[in-house]
Write a protein that binds this DNA or RNA. Structure first.
Lengths: 346, 346
DNA sequence: TTGAAAGCGCTAACAA
DNA sequence: TTGTTAGCGCTTTCAA
């Protein structure tokens, strides 16, 4: 409750208490060699007695390091982003960094971030989570002069971790095709803000190429777009249901979108999976909740790896394996089955 | 890509370019009075030309301020926490602060935080989100000597924002009682880690007192506990269904728990709401998704207010209204109705 | 209104 | 192994 800052002890206080110079204290406390054990012990205990904490401002001023890493993340309340952030945080804290959060939800915030680069002079590195960058934005990050790492996005030539979205989408298609579906639709997101346009594009590409591979035609109106989220997915499903010939199965770009599709199907009285199969992407908690077949990815691990890549990049200046790609797995649940027509009627 | 830090311009460079002293540059750039307009303009333009950014380390060393605020938050991937964080972030960035994230998921991380207080010397203030603190922990925060604010928790005597959990729970009970329910159960969470024990306790209290007020007895085994989350809720519902006389309605401490209850009911073939009414708490997105009746609260607004309280506390050293309590509203959806027995059979 | 100079608390180079 | 010293890049007196 007492509002007066306890004007904590300085290194000089510790030095005095231990009967040595500040230089020695500095060396001792940072675990550098060249300090006798006896002296080091005296210093450490004096520091503890005085409840001493080194001033990051003062040491940072000398070393040029900040001891913190910035994390740029859109839509923190989306499960995926929060999970990656959580893992990144875990690794970076473990490595002794502070995590400075830069949350950009709208276009304005995004523009401000890249316009002012509030990270300059304030971070030793930057992790970008799930934000597809424009070329200009990538270039701006380059001006930072600090290591940049991407998680579920590829910021220019910087190290990054992610999944093979093309392959993931293809798995969804193959699963449906293997069940006997021939008329498969897809729901994409419009993403006005370009948050995840890269991901979106690649999943569409995977969808198309797998369809082609299976010799299945993609009707022009079988790929519909809607805003991200449940409502968007619901609307898109409505569109598909109003085609002269609706597909028998749908691949949604993300679970959150698939969930909306399921809602429309329920409200329209279309049985799932009998009347319509649905596959999502991400394997989010809601997918399990609704028994949604989906393409899973290890979100936590992506965060862990991104954190490690950054620590590596900050410590030395080269990263062993700069582009990490994790596997996806199709998680078969209750929203997919053979199409009604093709189903042998036993 | 070039890894060399662009050793950005210093204030001395700006001073030289503008033909003034660093003292004047400092005054001008911080908008202090006592600088002629002509000189100020020259300085600002020189700073822009040189792409100058003030070194927070250097200025912090002088002023003693860090320019950043720490946010302590458990389980960032829980919707509630992420939403509050997002709002807090919005306000604090708007006020020019950096947001340093301290995410504590487990007991170990929590102990480490309060043991080492990694915020010392590194933040001008601290926002605690949804973490019920022990007395010792509260005391530790006091040692920080910086303003502390709680969102959805009350850290000792510090300013905070939250809802009236007792009243919120009572609303759930009254809703059910008004529908004719007389035998109402409750699902609590065990919360081994004490994250939200305060909230949990108050919601139970609201449940009990409202039941008493309505003259409804609470059977000893009608209040069951389970771990937080869907699985916990599912298990707890199983327990309730296995009582010799199950309740006709259940109030779950949180939506995430209610969702699990719904799952068990579905799997057990108990119709909702005909056979069992369910009320959650929080009005999370999943509540809308599953058409769950719940007690809503403005999560975003709590974050905004917490942010403002902190800014106030950091700027001056007194806060106008230190304890803010927001209203809850019962959101009636499809999981509540009159009990089957009491229902007039028209 | 401006400049000069001291010093914030540390690290790092150099001496001892 | 330890001490001395010169800054790091700012802000803030105090003079001018």
């Amino acid at each position: 409750m007492s509002q007066e800052r306890p004007s904590s002890a300085t290194m000089a206080d510790v030095a005095r208490a231990a009967g040595v110079s500040t230089g020695t204290v500095s060396r001792a406390l940072r675990g550098q060699s060249g300090v006798s054990d006896a002296v080091r012990r005296r210093i450490v205990s004096a520091a503890e007695d005085l409840d001493y904490v080194v001033s990051p401002a003062a040491s940072g001023l000398v070393t040029g390091r900040t001891g913190s890493v910035a994390v740029l993340v859109p839509f923190i309340s989306r499960w995926f982003h929060a999970r990656v952030l959580s893992a990144v945080h875990q690794v970076l804290r473990g490595a002794g960094f502070e995590i400075v959060l830069h949350h950009v939800e709208g276009t304005a915030e995004r523009r401000e971030f890249f316009g002012t680069l509030p990270v300059r002079r304030r971070a030793d590195g930057l992790v970008v989570i799930a934000l597809s960058l424009t070329d200009e934005e990538t270039e701006r990050l380059g001006e930072l002069g600090i290591p940049v790492v991407g998680a579920s996005t590829r910021p220019g030539g910087h190290p990054s971790v992610g999944i093979d979205d093309v392959e993931g989408a293809a798995k969804a298609v193959h699963h449906l095709a293997n069940l006997g579906h021939e008329h498969i639709g897809m729901i994409r997101t419009t993403d006005e803000e370009g948050i995840h346009q890269g991901v979106s594009r690649r999943r569409l590409e995977g969808f198309r190429s797998a369809m082609e591979e299976r010799g299945l035609p993609v009707a022009r109106d079988a790929v519909v777009s809607a805003p991200w989220g449940v409502d968007g997915g619901a609307r898109a499903m409505g569109e598909l249901l109003s085609l002269r010939r609706p597909p028998s199965a749908v691949f949604a770009e993300a679970d959150d979108v698939a969930v909306g599709a399921l809602r429309t199907l329920r409200r329209s009285g279309v049985a799932v999976p009998a009347g319509m199969s649905v596959v999502g992407f991400d394997d989010s908690p809601v997918a399990e909740l609704l028994d949604l077949t989906t393409v899973g990815q290890s979100v936590h691990e992506q965060g862990l790896i991104a954190g490690r890549l950054l620590v590596e990049a900050v410590r030395r200046r080269a990263v062993a394996e700069p582009q990490v790609q994790l596997e996806t797995q199709l998680v078969a649940r209750g929203t997919t089955s053979a199409p009604a027509k093709a189903r042998p009627d036993r």
